[in-house]
Each structure stands twice: as C-alpha cells, then as structure tokens.
Design a protein around this nucleic acid. Structure first.
Lengths: 223, 223
DNA sequence: GTAAAGGATATTGTATACAAAATACATGGC
DNA sequence: GCCATGTATTTTGTATACAATATCCTTTAC
C-alpha cells in the first residue's frame, strides 16, 4: 500500500490547523489526494504527527473552500468534480476575470504597469525553458499582477479560490507546447490593452483567454 | 451586563458544529453580535450548553465565510466591515448578479417564469404590509428564483455569500418606504426583460438595482 | 448456498484535560 | 508617584478520552 506523500511544511508559529490545512490543500490540488478519496482523521493525524483536533479544524475549512465533501456520520472525502461543476466554475471565472481586467484598466499605477511588463517577460522566459512548473508559476504571477492592480481584495481572493480548482487541468494545458505561442500572444495583447486603458478590448481578450482554457479542459475530460 | 440572546435551534440530527455555526451566523447577520465583539470559546460554550469543540469548528467555518476574523493567539472576533470591504463586495456582486441575470435570460424555463411571477406578486404584497422582515424575505426569494434559473450552483452559492454581508444594511434600506416604489418598479422591469430574453436590458437594470442599494448603504455609513 | 442477525471493529461526534501564551493586575524599587 | 517586573488569571492551542453510530465480517438458520 503506497501512501500519497504528504509532508508538513512547518511555518514555525502558524497554528497546526493552518499548517494541516495548507498541507491537505496542496495534496488535493497537486493530485496526491484524489477525488473521492476518504480523509480519515486518525489516519491523517498519525501520518502528519498531530492529534485529531487540528485535522478536524482543517477539514472544516477545506469543506467551506469546496475542496472536501462531508458525508454525515461517514466522514470527509476529497470533493469529486463533475463536468457541471467545472462549467459552473469557468462561467463564474470568466465573469470575475473580466471584472478584474476592467478594474485594472481603470486603476493600474505606473509602478504596476512595470510589474506587469516584468511578469510578462518572466513568463516568456519560462516558456522558453519548457519547464511546465515554471511556466505555470509564471502564469500565476502574471495574473496576480492584474488582480492586484484591480485594487479589490475580495475579488482577488475569490478569483484565486476559483483558479485553484483548475490547477490540475491547467497543468495539462500548459504541457501541450502547441498552446505556448497563443498564450504568449494573449498575454501580450491583454497587457497592451491594459496599458492603453482600453477596457473593452482587454475584457474581450481575457474572455477569449479563458475560453481557450475551457475548451481544452473540457476536451481533456472527454477522454 | 446584558447578553445578546443566542438560542440554539436544534435541528435534531445535525452535528452540533453546524447548529452552532448557524446560530452564530444568524447572531452576526441580525446584529446581535456586533463587529469587533470578541468570541470567546468557553464563554460561548457555556451559553450554548455545548463543549468547546463544536464552537471551535463553527468558528473555523465562520472565519472562511468572512464573518469572523482570527487574531493569532488572541482569538476570534466578529469581522469589522470597512468601507473598502463594502465597496469591494458590491463591485463583485454587481458583476455576479449581472451574470446571474444574463444566464437566467438564456436558461429560464416556463415553470420558473411562473415562479418568478409569483415571487414578484408576493413581494408586492409584502411591501403593502409594510413589515420590514417580510419585505426582506420576499426580496430574497425573488432573487433566489433568478439565481436558480441561472442553473449555476457555484454562482448561487457565491452570490448568496456576498449578499449575506449586506443583510444588516439592506434592512435599513428597506425600512425607508420611499424606496418601495422604486424597488417594485425595478423588480417588474427585470422580470419583464428576463421574460423576453432581453439579456442586455436585464443586465443594465439589475446593475442599476444594485447601484441604488450601494448608494443608500454608503450614505448610511457616512452618518 | 444464501440471507439474516449479531457482535466486533472502525470512525466520527463530543467533551474534557493539559500546555503554552498573552493579558492584567499587583507589588516593590527607585 | 511612576515605572518595571513578576505572578495570577484568562484564553487559546493541542491532545486525549469517552460515547454513539455505522460498517464489516462471521455465524447460524433455513
């Protein structure tokens, strides 16, 4: 019996519940813990070397994040993602990303414009390395700059939460190097429109950007 | 020392954590627990007649809902709402409500059109009673019909969560009977546009609808 | 051979006990 | 009289103990 490798990343003075929460969250997002897999408290507690209490509190948090499903008197399992779920999430994301971009157009500072430019540069460099993880990280950073420029904390939090769910699928999308050119192209366009304060075109482009991901993820699921 | 009256509504076979969660949530939304008020575990446990464990788990959930703020090694307090917070939430809500309405335009069934009509009728009747709570409830029901018609579960959940935060303020808005005519007017318009599948106008109208609430809430805060 | 009943086991739900840290208050020194 | 230090108290963080329930396996009756 092989155990998915979970390792507590102890951040010194963070409560154990938060450490466990982050660990389990990573495990789910990275796919080490698979949808439908049961999360048994004692088992997890033993493996992570803590008591049940922090485990339970972490599970309560994951439950509200939507990454874990509770079955009454049965326990927790890693949330199963249905196609419907995926469609719902992408639909909302498209709307929120659009909002983020349009707010960014209005509110971005000169400083942030430079950050965006740097993030774009870093992304292109990551693409050249062909290392999937680097590309994914650079992509996240690029989108983060836009989100920050929107100056809306709530929006940042919500978009990040939604994007999280797509993580596993997005990796597959990035693996396919045929998409790389298009990704760079889209990033450049979005940056330019934001730079010019061209809200309308920026929105249209980001929507296309998400649409492309959506199509790809759905075709992944078909198989 | 007067205690805010919290009463456990025991729903037979629901875990205590959920009962406590609902109780505290109601308390916060109804304003019995005021922003900044500390939530001390033993204290709450004694008052609700349970142990600390369900209290703690409920607090973890409220924390992720955004209704409670954790201060490390200090404990939990009812989340303070800043003006910035409010602006952020309303900005996102405007976008998501817009999405809900436009999806509803595309996906609403004949059955749901009738539901919407009934909800609107009930709302107008509630307005005639002048009872603030009834009006608020009828309003929630009306918007719920639209959300359901959008056929997007994630969206429903997110909008409801955002709307929750406005609850206290919305009551004040509804109290002011000068707004009643406009509310009815807007509801009727939105219903008509959805009925006609006129996505564009439906979106514009719902945005105005939220804008009006926003202005009112902000002017409340000015005082 | 199959199905039902019963007990053993595993697992969640809840309460409590213990540890560590922060806070508040009092006491003593200057 | 004021500030600093130390101690008592409060409160969170964590672990464990106990209770209730569900699950699984075995045994027995038909």
């Amino acid at each position: 019996m092989e155990e998915p490798k979970l390792q507590l990343m102890i951040d010194e003075y963070l409560p154990l519940r938060d450490v466990v929460f982050n660990t389990l969250r990573q495990g789910i997002l990275r796919g080490d813990l698979k949808p439908g897999e049961r999360l048994m408290e004692i088992h997890l507690a033993k493996r992570l070397g803590v008591s049940r209490t922090p485990i339970r509190e972490a599970i309560r948090m994951l439950e509200l994040e939507g990454l874990v499903t509770m079955i009454p008197r049965k326990g927790a399992e890693v949330a199963r993602i249905s196609r419907q779920d995926l469609r719902d999430v992408l639909e909302v994301r498209k709307s929120l990303d659009s909002l983020a971009v349009s707010l960014a157009c209005e509110r971005i500072t000169e400083e942030e414009k430079k950050d965006l430019d740097n993030a774009e540069e870093a992304f292109e460099q990551a693409v050249r390395t062909k290392d999937v993880t680097s590309i994914a990280e650079a992509d996240v950073k690029y989108h983060d700059v836009i989100l920050r420029a929107s100056k809306n904390g709530r929006l940042m939090q919500m978009v990040n939460n939604l994007a999280e769910r797509m993580y596993r699928y997005r990796l597959e999308y990035i693996k396919d190097s045929r998409n790389h050119e298009r990704l760079i192209e889209e990033h450049r366009k979005i940056m330019k429109y934001i730079d010019d304060g061209d809200t309308e075109n920026a929105c249209i482009t980001i929507q296309m950007h998400i649409d492309n991901q959506e199509k790809n993820i759905i075709s992944q699921l078909e198989q």
